[in-house]
Nucleic acid binder design. Structure first.
Lengths: 187, 187
DNA sequence: TTTAAATATATCAAAAGAATACATTGACAC
DNA sequence: GTGTCAATGTATTCTTTTGATATATTTAAA
């Protein structure tokens, strides 16, 4: 009774995508993802390492090199079957959206007028952090050499998204700050 | 050695907020949240039921009524200490943002030109679902009786946010559809 | 009036995320 | 040179969150 565990996780595809780019260790994959997709996709080690082992078992990737001695480092490389799986996923008409969590909006939802003064600086902080984010994406250099020409314009759409999201949030902050200021003034 | 488990979870505040509105069971709390805050905050049963027990232990809420017989239904009510905790949280200058996951953007990030044709209908579907969402928020009635006047304009800011987010995503879909169409045409 | 569908309640396993542990390298002060 | 500290690289473990499923009850339908 070796019941196969069903893996519905999308982590496998994020990893395959990363390895399609180049062979890497779990640590490097996470670094790559957090530098490129973190605005809409993040992975943690706790997810990456077990999934790598799983992908090896499934023969979608293989160990490319293994350095021992105290700290060990295992690099993985994608196999042809892995590339097929990646492309199948990209083209299959199923995808999942999971909205994030915004604690500040939750506070606003439960707040009363007399909380307005305390909320004001929190929204200012939010705006600052969004402005920082917007700056990062504006400075993003799509002409960088490592990006294959073939996918450049597709990647551009994800950056477009992040920029638009940041801008939208900044504008919301501004509208909301105005409102809170008027509430706070009217005590 | 009864080491107190530290609860850093924000679920407690979502629950306290819900109960501040009116006494309710775990099921009802979840229903309330999913009808009102689901665009920026969701809770599942797996989180709600254990947290309710915890909050009772901490004397922030209490059991208001308990119906037995086969299926049991326990309603909880917020205590003064719970209200204080809720307000303290709203005013404290700490909040956490957790960006969601967008599998479609992940696909676009890893895609190549020749995937464009397969991605096109996926983005169309995305646009439709966003249009539906936008419709819901536009129709939202803030003048409904149950909403206390005191927090009406604060709640309005969260709806403003959701509307703006939906609009932004629809516009992104339109830009992206144009691009993909041109890529797909050029084979 | 039995059956089917919708609603209400709760549990549990899987996935995701956060915190931590430990190893190596490099830079700098002495 | 050498001891100390910080930065980086690697991985594990634990907690929180999510999702699927089980079970009971009520309502609607046939």
């Amino acid at each position: 009774m070796t019941a196969e565990k069903v893996v519905s996780s999308r982590t496998r595809h994020a990893i395959l995508g990363g390895l399609a780019h180049e062979a890497a260790s779990g640590y490097e994959i996470r670094k790559f993802l957090s530098e490129t997709t973190s605005h809409f996709w993040k992975e943690g080690y706790g997810q990456i390492y077990p999934t790598l082992e799983r992908l090896v078992e499934e023969k979608l990737i293989e160990v490319a090199s293994r350095e021992a001695g105290g700290r060990e480092r295992v690099r993985y490389r994608i196999l042809p079957a892995g590339s097929v799986e990646l492309r199948t996923w990209i083209r299959s008409p199923r995808f999942q959206l999971k909205s994030g969590r915004n604690e500040l909006l939750l506070k606003l939802f439960f707040a009363r007028r007399d909380d307005a003064a305390a909320l004001l600086p929190q929204i200012q902080e939010y705006r600052v952090s969004m402005q920082k984010t917007a700056g990062i994406y504006s400075a993003f250099d799509l002409d960088a050499d490592e990006i294959p020409d073939d996918s450049r314009s597709l990647i551009a759409t994800t950056i477009d998204y992040s920029k638009a999201a940041a801008r939208m949030q900044i504008e919301w902050c501004e509208r909301t700050l105005d409102l809170l200021a008027s509430l706070a003034k009217a005590d």
